[in-house]
Design a protein around this nucleic acid. Structure first.
Lengths: 239, 239
DNA sequence: CGGAACTTTGAGTCACTTCAATCGGTGTGG
DNA sequence: CCACACCGATTGAAGTGACTCAAAGTTCCG
C-alpha cells in the first residue's frame, strides 16, 4: 500500500512511479507529538513543511479572552503549512488531538515537489479543497442548528477518512472530546452533549470515547443536508 | 494609476514593468452584470477565469429549502474562479450585489499568468489569503455575537478595500442589504437591524443604503477583536 | 404616482447558554 | 491492588440572545 501522502494526492489523479518513489523518499524521519501538544503555533514561521502521517490534529484560533474556535481538522496525509514560503507567519495554531506522527519536509524538497507537475497540481487541488471545506464550515455554522452541525461534521469526517482508507463500516477514529466538538461547531459543550444524545437516541450514530460509528449513513446525510461535492473527490482514483 | 488587478497583486510584492504591462493587456473586453444577477452558478464549469473590475459580488451557497449563506464578499481585483482548471465544477455560486464590471480571461492567458513567477506567487498568496479569510469567518460565526460579527465584517471590508485604495476616511461603498448581511453572518434580518441600530447608537458606524462609514475605527476593532494579520497585507507594497 | 424592495418596530417563543453539581472512567502513586 | 485525583460526560435549572411572525414605515425606481 502506498504511503499516506501518496494516497491522498492520488485522489486528484494518478501519479507516475517516479513521483510515487519521490513521495516515499520524503517520509523518513518521523517526529512524534503527544496529544494536547501544539504542532505549530500562531505567529510562527518555520523553514519546513510539516506533514501528518498518523493521528489527528486541528487548526484553531484563540480569541483575546479564553474562547477558542477550531477551524478545521487535520488528518493523515494533510500538510500543516503548505504556504510556508509565501506567507510570513501562521495566522492560526495547529494542535494534536491524539498522539501524532509527523514528518518535516525541508524547503528544498518542497520546491522539488512543485517542480513535478502532477504533484504540483495535486497540491493545488488539496489547497482548493481545504478552501471549499472552509466554505462549507461557514455554511454549517451559519445555517444549521446544533444537531445538524454535528451530523454534518460526522459526515464530512467519514467521507474524508474513507477516501484515504481510514474507515471501516461507518466506523472511524475520532479522538475529539465534546468540548473540542463544541469549539469546532460554535456551540457550548453542554449543548453538544445533548445534541449527541439526541442523535444516539435516533439510532443515527454511536459515539464512543475516541471513535465514531455512523449507523445510518443515508439518514445522517439527509438530516444534515450533506452534499460531498465540495470535497471534489470525483476527479481521481476512487476506492 | 495601475489597473485594479495589478494593484491587488502588488499587495504581495512589486511586479516588473513587463508583468504590469501583461496584466494591463488582460483587461480588454469588459462585460457588465446587473445587480442581483449571478456571475457564476454552482455546478458550472467554464473555460475562462472571471475577474471583477468594478462593483461588489458575493460567493454563496443555497441549502435545500430556501436558506442561503454568503461565504465571502468579492471586490474589485478578485478572481471569481482561479481554480477553474483544477476543479471540475463550482461548489458555490457568485452573485452580483451591485452592477459589476467583469473581464473574462481566457485559458491561454491564465496559463501565461502562471508562467510569470512573480504573478504566480501573487496568485498563490491571494488564494491563501482567501483561505485565511474563510478561517476568520468561521471564527466570527462560531465565537462572536451579532453585534461583534457585524463590527468585524465592517473592519474586514474596510481593511480589504483600503488596501486597494477604495476607501476614504473610513467610508466605503457597501451595496449590501440587511438581508444580505444576515445571510453572511448567520443571523436573521430582523436581528441585523437591531444590532446595526446598537452600533449606530454607540457612534461607531454610520450605515447608509449603499455605503458604510466607520466613525471610530479603533473602537470598532477593539469591540470585534479584529486583528488584520489574517489578511497578510504586510508583505508587499502598502499604501 | 404606484408598486416593489428594503428597513424598522413589537411581541411572543425557543434554541442555546451559563452555572453548578454529579457521575464515570482512567491513570498513577503508595 | 486499592485509593485518590483528574478529566471528561452527563444532568438540572434558570436566563437570554436570537428567532419567527406580522405589520407599518421608508426609499427607490419605472
Amino acid at each position: 500500500m502506498a504511503n499516506i501522502l501518496t494516497r491522498k494526492l492520488e485522489l486528484f489523479g494518478p501519479l507516475s512511479d517516479d513521483d510515487r518513489a519521490f513521495l516515499d523518499s520524503l517520509i523518513d524521519d518521523v517526529v512524534s507529538v503527544a496529544a494536547g501538544e501544539d504542532i505549530i503555533c500562531e505567529g510562527e514561521n518555520t523553514d519546513h513543511v510539516r506533514l501528518i502521517v498518523e493521528g489527528m490534529a486541528c487548526r484553531y484560533k484563540i480569541l483575546g479572552d479564553a474562547s477558542r474556535q477550531i477551524v478545521s481538522f487535520v488528518v493523515p496525509g494533510d500538510l500543516c503549512n503548505p504556504h510556508v514560503f509565501i506567507l510570513k507567519a501562521m495566522d492560526h495554531s495547529i494542535g494534536a488531538l491524539s498522539a501524532c506522527h509527523t514528518v518535516n519536509i525541508e524547503r528544498q524538497r518542497v520546491l522539488e515537489m512543485f517542480e513535478r507537475p502532477a504533484i504540483a497540481r495535486a497540491l493545488w487541488w488539496s489547497t482548493l479543497v481545504d478552501e471549499a471545506t472552509l466554505r462549507e464550515w461557514v455554511v454549517n455554522l451559519g445555517q444549521r442548528d446544533a444537531k445538524e452541525r454535528l451530523a454534518h461534521l460526522f459526515c464530512e469526517m467519514h467521507t474524508r477518512l474513507e477516501s484515504i482508507g481510514l474507515t471501516e463500516n461507518g466506523k472511524f477514529s475520532f479522538p475529539v472530546t465534546q468540548a473540542d466538538m463544541a469549539a469546532a461547531l460554535g456551540i457550548s459543550g453542554v449543548h453538544v452533549n445533548r445534541a449527541l444524545q439526541s442523535l444516539r437516541a435516533e439510532g443515527l450514530v454511536s459515539v464512543g470515547r475516541k471513535e465514531v460509528v455512523i449507523l445510518d449513513v443515508a439518514a445522517l446525510k439527509t438530516m444534515s443536508q450533506f452534499d460531498p461535492n465540495y470535497l471534489h473527490l470525483t476527479g481521481g482514483k476512487q476506492k
